[in-house]
Design a protein around this nucleic acid. Structure first.
Lengths: 129, 129
DNA sequence: GCTTGACCTTCCTGTTACTGGAACCTTTAT
DNA sequence: ATAAAGGTTCCAGTAACAGGAAGGTCAAGC
């Protein structure tokens, strides 16, 4: 199949597919005589794997590691494990930060009495020392 | 005061201060004959305001709006209000996403039995259809 | 008077994960 | 023959800076 069809099947844009090839996340595609890229079923699988990792908010660099790691099927899966754990930790930190943030923003929003700028309680608090 | 001192007082790097000036978030600083930027107390206040907005994860473009809005002290504070509400909404959406994400990642992490790559349950799930 | 070190300046590059667009080639249908 | 719809490469832009090069300035010490 050509790149557009792969894009439709995997719901990853053709631009992005080329980009993944550029950065070495996908192997170089086979080319026809016209220079067009041609893909097979394995490419669909690769892209689905990448898409699933992305849903977990993994950076492409980490996904690249996950792909690389799979070349040696007898290696221990410690690195996979570590990447997931690291990701989980980051998510938890982010969650905590967002909680605090929500409180602060809610406080500001609640204080608003829809005045004019010069009396705006939100701006006053943002200017406070 | 010179830029380094402003940086120390506000805990915003000199690089970042110049950048804010570049993009028009800070007004152009007064220059000495040597070309150096010189700052006053009002600049400290401006940067503190910006820093506080940033702690609320506001994009610089929004902060720029907040700064601009304050030039007319008799205007209603509706836009301020709206920006905060919008920010709050985004934070809540992000929180929800992170919750789902945490569940997924935790599920993956729990399933790991520290095998070899070929039996890795994490990878298996990421490859699943 | 000269040097050294700590400032300052501007400008360029790189970061992340793409997207948009230009300029140009190929294939297919009318 | 031509037009539409695909393909290709390459360049620029996004957000919010950080790092570094190349060079000017200023105060202190010898």
């Amino acid at each position: 199949m050509q790149i557009k069809q792969l894009a439709q099947v995997t719901k990853v844009s053709a631009k992005t597919i080329r980009y993944y090839e550029d950065i070495g996340l996908l192997p170089e595609a086979k080319r026809g005589e016209n220079g067009y890229r041609y893909y097979q079923q394995t490419d669909v699988s690769s892209l689905n794997f990448i898409r699933r990792c992305k849903e977990l908010r993994m950076p492409l660099a980490d996904i690249k590691r996950l792909v690389a790691v799979q070349s040696d099927s007898n290696a221990p899966c410690a690195e996979v494990d570590a990447l997931i754990a690291q990701q989980l930790e980051q998510i938890r930190v982010a969650q905590y930060e967002l909680q605090q943030l929500e409180k602060n923003l809610q406080g500001l929003a609640d204080s608003c009495e829809h005045n004019q700028i010069k009396d705006c309680s939100i701006l006053n608090q943002l200017h406070a020392n």
